[in-house]
């Protein structure tokens, strides 16, 4: 069994919704991002999504773009990322979702999946790799028991949902807004309806992300989804306290606790 399945199963038993925070590996620097990941785990993260920076993040808004730019300046290599995850897993073995774009993965061929498995990665989310094109990666990840996480969006109709869900493993990531990543004031009204439609087709857990930034939105999403994914808001705590590491970690731990408390 993949750890992602185990985690969702145990959360369901406890009637809990998963908290999945996102950060980029290497932002603001490698060691601080490691401290941030530990802080998130200590304060309620059930799974963690770790971004591997790409030069052209087409699906991301300004906040995550800047996060990637800082990480790229720190010259984070794929081996740095794998080492980071290995160390994090030694600290606490929660499921890790590796989040990136396809080119950095593609150029490594089957080496990517080998390295990812060694590092302990449980799921890979490649934002520009829809199921249609995912075969050449899946044939490697399957062998290593790594799940590919797929997305659904407000624009996905019923047929599309059925198609994507037939590939989905672990959980499906529902993008709650028609747009790029970033902070929005409220959760769009159609989300509960769409998540409901997904649930009618498949029993797989549904995580909701893009645009979620606070307790109110999180407790709203909890009503119908199995996981709440938050990225940009956390990255903003990094940006706002870029010169004060202890304040950064304090803000992030407080935020994580408050989110986790409503899930």
């Amino acid at each position: 069994m993949n750890r992602i399945d185990g985690t969702f199963k145990s959360l369901r038993h406890r009637n809990r919704t998963a908290f999945i925070p996102f950060i980029s590996i290497g932002d603001p620097d490698l060691e601080t991002s490691f401290e941030i990941a530990k802080t998130l785990i200590d304060n309620g993260a059930d799974l963690i999504e770790l971004g591997y920076p790409f030069s052209d993040p087409m699906a991301d808004g300004k906040v995550i773009q800047r996060s990637y730019e800082r990480a790229i300046k720190n010259r984070i290599s794929i081996n740095d990322a794998f080492d980071f995850i290995k160390r994090l897993k030694e600290y606490r073995d929660i499921p890790v979702i590796f989040f990136t774009y396809y080119n950095p993965v593609f150029v490594m061929g089957h080496g990517f999946s080998l390295g990812a498995a060694k590092a302990g990665i449980d799921g890979v989310l490649v934002v520009d790799l829809p199921p249609e094109e995912s075969g050449e990666l899946t044939k490697h990840t399957l062998k290593q028991n790594i799940y590919q996480i797929f997305l659904l969006a407000p624009t996905s109709g019923r047929k599309r949902m059925e198609y994507v869900l037939s590939f989905a493993r672990g959980f499906v990531y529902y993008v709650s807004v028609t747009g790029v990543t970033g902070i929005r004031k409220a959760v769009s009204e159609t989300v509960s309806e769409k998540v409901g439609a997904i649930k009618k087709i498949s029993g797989i857990p549904v995580g909701v992300g893009f645009g979620i930034s606070g307790k109110e939105q999180a407790s709203e999403v909890k009503k119908y989804a199995d996981a709440v994914i938050i990225g940009s808001k956390i990255i903003q705590f990094i940006e706002n306290n870029i010169r004060d590491k202890s304040l950064m970690l304090r803000d992030i731990s407080g935020f994580a606790r408050s989110i986790s408390s409503v899930l």
Partner: peptide, 21 residues
């Protein structure tokens, strides 16, 4: 049919755009 020229081409886009394309 899927837009491939040999191994090249295809459709590598985020899910939101899939219905539009």
């Amino acid at each position: 049919k899927m837009g491939h020229f040999g191994i090249y081409g295809g459709r590598y886009i985020s899910e939101t755009l899939m219905p539009a394309i």
